[in-house]
């Protein structure tokens, strides 16, 4: 008669061993600080001590005119930054991918590799390179516009409050257009030939094949790209910092949530760093990103029809 204890499966320690390093590092460096930051936003510093303050920091952030003005300014700029990416970067990526995915096109590997190059460069390189090119001192931009007779259109875009943010957004688009291009390209390649041939038999070719067949099939990829763009844009920082400095000039016209968080938390020039207010802004960013991701997961993704081939 078998011993009943033998029936129990042995403890499988190896599962724990396999999981432990990843779970430990991830929990200690990512999840724990995330919640600690959210928690810090509920406290204020009183000398050396942290005093529980409830939602006071949020009242300051949204109620105190000085704070709320810079927060909403950064939020508004950030929304514009995102809008430009959605209106320029993603459509441009789709167009480039649609051209590239044409089966008879030659040199497509070369184009793909070349167009992706800006994406691999650091924000520091991109920020300064464009700053130099657009600079009135060096004169490349005005001279090139002059060569096609449009010199009057030139302005020191990065130095003007009205244009600086849009210019920086377009620089960022220039840098990252490779990512939507690649993802859409992959989605277009995965459409089976039979589908396209069947459409061709029905007389749908060329541009109308793109609108009627391909575009509906790549909508899920466009959805993913949109949410990736949203998350990346709402915690962007590097490009603005590299090109305009932490003060996000001229006169805070390029200030976004990332630069506001940096200045608040770390301090800059005359402003002292404030970890609690920094955490409050970080919490607000967390909320914004969470809302965006939820809208995508529950509002958009469930409505997109996915096709399995």
């Amino acid at each position: 008669m078998p011993d009943p204890i033998d029936k129990r499966p042995p403890r499988r320690w190896h599962i724990a061993v396999f999981l432990a390093p990843a779970v430990l590092v991830y929990s200690a460096i990512m999840i724990f600080p995330l919640f600690a930051t959210l928690n810090l936003s509920l406290y204020t510093a009183d000398g050396q001590n942290q005093v529980f303050a409830g939602l006071d920091n949020f009242r300051t952030l949204f109620g105190d005119p000085r704070w709320s003005e810079s927060f909403w300014n950064a939020f508004k700029n950030n929304a514009w930054f995102f809008l430009i990416h959605m209106l320029v970067q993603n459509p441009l990526g789709v167009i480039l991918a649609a051209i590239l995915s044409h089966p008879a096109l030659r040199f497509s590997a070369f184009y793909r590799t070349a167009i992706f190059i800006p994406t691999i460069l650091s924000f520091v390189i991109v920020g300064f390179a464009w700053k130099l090119i657009l600079s009135p001192v060096w004169g490349i931009a005005p001279d090139m516009l002059g060569a096609i007779g449009l010199k009057s259109l030139y302005a020191p875009w990065l130095g003007k409050e009205a244009y600086a943010l849009t210019t920086l957004s377009l620089i960022s688009v220039w840098q990252f257009v490779g990512i939507p291009m690649m993802l859409i390209y992959a989605a277009l390649l995965s459409i089976p030939d039979e589908v396209l041939e069947a459409a061709e038999c029905d007389g749908i070719t060329g541009i109308s094949a793109f609108w009627k067949i391909k575009l509906p099939l790549i909508l899920p990829s466009i959805g993913i790209i949109s949410i990736l763009t949203f998350v990346a844009n709402f915690n962007a920082f590097d490009l603005i910092y590299a090109a305009q400095g932490a003060l996000a000039g001229p006169d805070f016209s390029t200030d976004i949530l990332g630069t506001l968080l940096y200045r608040t938390f770390f301090g800059f020039q005359l402003q002292l760093g404030d970890p609690n207010m920094g955490s409050t802004i970080a919490t607000a960013m967390f909320g914004i990103i969470l809302i965006g991701v939820c809208i995508y997961l529950f509002g958009v993704q469930t409505r997109l029809r996915r096709y399995q081939f």
């Binding site: 460096i29 600080p33 995330l34 600690a36 915690n235 990332g258 968080l261 920094g278 967390f286 990103i289």
Partner: peptide, 21 residues
Amino acid sequence: LYLALGIMIPIRIGTVAILQL
């Protein structure tokens, strides 16, 4: 699911506490 959380939530949000840590 726990490990996948970090795909969508940027680690920068926790910077204040990471620095303290």
